[in-house]
Amino acid sequence: MARVAVDVVIKPEILDPQGKAILAALKRIGQQGVSAVRQGKHFDLEVDDSVSDADLEEIAGHLLANPVIESWTVTRVAQETVGAGSEDAR
């Protein structure tokens, strides 16, 4: 088993009205230093060893993200470090 993180964001050329609304709300709580917000999605996947990098690209590009409007990154989270480290205990 391994843990995989997939992050999906709307492409820069696509208007992100939710990001704009969040930016406006940040100004209202006094955070004047933020100049842009893009809202995305984060997926945590538990996958077994048979799942290849090509499979992960298929998973991300065919379902988790829509390539027309979104870009994505796939990150394998090293199981050993996660298991022994603080993340599981969190």
Binding site: I10, I14, L15, P17, Q18, N66, V68, I69
Partner: peptide, 17 residues
């Protein structure tokens, strides 16, 4: 139909939210 690839493009959140 757009998500299925039968038509090109995509439908996203309305500009005014």
């Amino acid at each position: 139909l757009c998500e299925a690839g039968l038509l090109p493009g995509a439908l996203v959140r309305n500009a005014g939210l």
